[in-house]
Amino acid sequence: MKLYYAETLSPRKTCALAQYLGLPIDYAFVDLRRGEHTRPDYLAINPNGKVPCLVDGEKVIWEADAIMCHLAQRAESPLWPRGAQQQIDVVRWFSWNSQHLLRHAGALYFEYLIKPWAGLGEPDASKVAEAQGFFRKHAAVLDQHLKGRKWLLGDDLSLADFSVGISLPYAKNAAMPLEEFPEVVRWHDQLNAIDAWRDPFPARQERAAANA
């Protein structure tokens, strides 16, 4: 298997899961700054020009949540539940996150982390305020759901946790008001106890040199 990734939000959850499962994967870093995601050879793999993307033999899978399902199935991991109702619950949280929490957390991530990285100027105060308002709205739903539950589906860690939590490692640097939601903080602290969650990306020469 070959996983194309960048050190950004969506690839982070696929890399974290792959590291957690200990799967034998060839990691291929896609340098977004150099536009490698727009090159013809990459577009031949993923015509969307996005990361992550997984190549497993003849199978090519786009979209981070779908990649996570495939990896869990390959590993025969209970992170992708066996029961149909629990599978529906995982998909429900995938959808909820993409349409609600991640949508607005991602806007803050863009304003505070991507714009400086890409040289696009300072955060837009009006967009920040709007995104923080929606973040609070949806984080409140998550906070209420987590009361009395260890993980999103109950007692057991699942792909839903890997998906929904993915913006939270950036909460402080992206001005997400995470601290207002104690159940979400408690839940994310549990994720942070997982080595692969804290340090999901494989080593690269550039990173190794920077840390030397």
Results as ranks from 00 to 15, higher is better:
Leu146Gly: 13
Gly49Ile: 00
His37Phe: 01
Leu120Asn: 04
Leu102Lys: 04
Asp89Phe: 02
Gly106Phe: 03
Lys2Ile: 08
Phe201Pro: 02
Asp124Val: 11
Val90Asn: 04
Pro47Asp: 01
Ala66Ile: 06
His145Leu: 05
Glu58His: 10
Ser163Phe: 05
Ser158His: 10
Tyr5Val: 11
Pro177Glu: 07
Asp161Asn: 06
Ser163Pro: 03
Ala208Gly: 00
Ala208Ser: 11
Asp41Ser: 13
Ser98Arg: 05
Leu146Glu: 09
Val60Tyr: 07
Pro116Leu: 12
Thr14Met: 06
Arg136Gly: 00
Glu122Cys: 01
Gln19Pro: 00
Ala18Leu: 06
Lys127Val: 10
Phe201Glu: 03
Pro11Asp: 04
Tyr4Glu: 01
Tyr4Asn: 04
Ile61Phe: 00
Val164Lys: 02
Glu130Leu: 14
Glu183Pro: 00
Gly133Val: 05
Leu54Tyr: 04
Asn173Trp: 06
Arg39Asp: 03
Lys115Val: 06
Ile166Asp: 03
Ala64Asp: 15
Met176Leu: 14
Gln190Arg: 15
Pro116Arg: 12
Trp96Ser: 06
Ile45Glu: 01
Trp80Glu: 06
Cys69Arg: 14
Gln85Phe: 09
Gly35Val: 01
Gly22Met: 11
Gln86His: 13
Pro116Met: 12
Ala72Asn: 09
Asn192Asp: 05
Val90Trp: 12
